[in-house]
Amino acid sequence: MSVEASEVQRIAHLARLAMSDEKAREFAGGLSDIFAFVEQLDGAPIEGVEPMAHPLDAEQRLRPDAVTEPDNREGFQAIAPAVEGGLYLVPRVIE
């Protein structure tokens, strides 16, 4: 499978990655090679095989619905790029 630069731009947008047209052309070759490489899976003997999501087929563990974590808000916000009054700041969302 061959990926065009325009398709790279579409995927980059879905993945929220800013990308110049030049960079998209550069990525197109490598991505085409990877998709061609994974086409080897097409001939695999997997008829009737259950997909495997997890090595140990574990079940989700549950815990009592109790507060276990202390309030670390100040520590967590100290490493944020922009905060004010306990809130995270982002550019205006609603015009």
């Binding site: 994974v38 899976l41 097409d42 695999a44 997997i46 095989v49 259950e50 997909p51 495997m52």
Partner: peptide, 12 residues
């Protein structure tokens, strides 16, 4: 075509 197939291959 990709993810589900790969997970089945993972099993075998």
């Amino acid at each position: 075509a990709y993810y589900l197939k790969a997970q089945k291959v993972r099993r075998i």
